[in-house]
């Protein structure tokens, strides 16, 4: 199973980036190999408009099973994410990736 995080940094101790579209990084955790991979999202962050749709497109290509983020995607992003077979959990701002994963496993993150 692949879990995607919107992240402000590149490792387990990095904070969740509360933003979806303009997140600094997308970090993917693959629990079968127990490995992290990092995608730099700075190009999208610098789009004047439509960051949400551009980030959604990236997420689509990564095809995670789960997305863990902060405030949650805006309208535009939500419309794209709907097309994917993926569960989205929000409310993980102020947590590190590690804490966010634990929170998800305990079922304390809200599904949207």
């Amino acid at each position: 199973m692949k879990i995607a995080f919107t992240a402000a940094g590149k490792d387990w101790d990095a904070m969740i980036d509360p933003r979806f579209g303009r997140t600094e990084y997308i970090v993917i955790y693959d629990d079968s190999s127990d490995e992290l991979s990092v995608i730099d999202n700075s190009a999208v962050k610098n789009e004047a408009h439509g960051a949400g749709t551009a980030t959604s497109q990236k997420i689509f290509e990564l095809s995670p099973d789960i997305l863990i983020t902060g405030n949650g995607p805006g309208d535009n992003a939500a419309k794209a994410l709907e097309k994917m077979n993926m569960k989205i959990f929000v409310g993980a701002q102020d947590l590190t990736l590690k804490q966010a994963l634990e929170a998800y496993r305990k079922g304390s993150l809200k599904e949207c």
Partner: peptide, 12 residues
């Protein structure tokens, strides 16, 4: 519009 969405994004 877009600017206010961006203002809100990440807010506590």
């Amino acid at each position: 519009g877009c600017p206010v969405v961006s203002s809100l994004s990440g807010a506590s």
